[in-house]
Amino acid sequence: MNNDVNATWPKLPVALKKIAIDPTSDDYELMCSNYFVTGRPKLILRATTERDVIASIQYVKKIRESVSHSIPFSFRSGGHGISMASVNDGGIILDISQLNSVTVTDAEQGLVQVQAGAVWGDVAEALRPFNLIISSGDFGDTGVGGLATGGGIGLLVRRLGLTIDHIVSARLVTADGEIRVTDHQKYPDLFWGIRGGNSQLGMVTAFTFKASKLVEEKSDISLPFTVQTIESQTSNLTKFIQQWQSWITHASSKMSSNLMLTAENRNTVHINASNFWAGSINSDAKALFKSALSLSEVNKHQLETKSYAELVKAPHIPHSGQQPVFVKNILLDAMNPNIGDIITSIFKASATM
């Protein structure tokens, strides 16, 4: 790399030169993007140890104090980055994807230490031999650090809650370059803040999670999930959403459901539904899957049972800003009767794809 990253910035410490990547580096293009956007940072620091993380944060602090506090600074773990904040233009990215170990420390208690640069598909695979599972997102390449500090809504949310509900403790490096181990007793306010506060309070380098043990004696598959996929369509989205909401609300907590709605025209909405039953198929699951087919005009339907690790397997696809969709998350604490009308109006707006 070019040792003179920016003439106005303090000189790069020797300890950071070995992990520094700039626009002249061969692997710059592989490191400057996430799944949704490509950034153009002036410097990428690819940490391989927690000491690298400390030195990187101290260096950024020095730059901001001597040059400008407005210089962007992003944390990148898995690189999926649905918030698009893990890369930037003109600033610094601290990448921790090499800090990715997963260690089961107590299988009986379900205690697992996971470094924040790991991806959830690899975590699920590491836990499979122990019949352990952590409620996480729905895509294996998503990084542990971003999801676990941002909430963590996934395929097990109705059964096991959010990812943040299962954090026992965390190691993080704060802006002063200090390592703090936090839990309900140590720095409790900080522990509260990192569970949903994302990267605003420091960089978490490792978590201790309490995983859950889900075992079915009659299944040949470790942690079986039965997945129903339905392709359908409707001309009355408001009615469909109301019926779907009633169906999932009254369903067992072993069932979760994801919907993807797309409008080919302003009158017909295409529905891709994925319904996840935590366990092998039984009479309760069959009844729920059957009733899901009555919610809309079905074009295609499939049932499949696989392990959780297979369901969220990490493809390890390099990120290049390949997803050109702008994503915005909105949390509803209740589905009010008008939500179908509101979503319908969004589809009818000219700015909606």
Rank of each mutant, 00 (worst) to 15 (best):
E217N: 13
H166F: 10
V269W: 01
D52C: 05
G152P: 05
K213G: 15
L172Y: 01
T149A: 04
T268G: 08
L43E: 07
I133M: 11
K210S: 13
F225L: 13
H250N: 13
S256G: 08
S232H: 06
R195H: 02
D122C: 06
S25Q: 06
S232G: 15
P337C: 00
T8A: 12
A15H: 03
E125K: 11
E29V: 13
D284A: 11
E50I: 12
L12Q: 01
A15M: 03
W120F: 06
A118K: 01
V102S: 05
D165Q: 05
I241A: 00
K186Y: 10
N299S: 12
L201S: 08
N198G: 12
Y28C: 04
A211S: 08
K286I: 07
Q322K: 05
D95Y: 01
L43I: 08
G154M: 02
A116E: 00
A314W: 05
T49D: 11
G81L: 01
N299L: 12
L288C: 07
K313N: 12
M1L: 07
T105R: 02
L16Q: 05
G146P: 12
P224L: 02
S101R: 08
D333T: 14
F240V: 04
I221N: 02
G321Y: 02
S219G: 09
D95W: 00
V37F: 01
T24S: 14
L288Y: 03
K328T: 10
E50M: 09
S235H: 10
V204T: 03
Q302L: 11
L111N: 08
E304G: 07
S345P: 13
H184R: 13
V123C: 02
G143V: 00
L214C: 03
D106T: 02
Y187T: 09
K213Y: 04
Q302T: 13
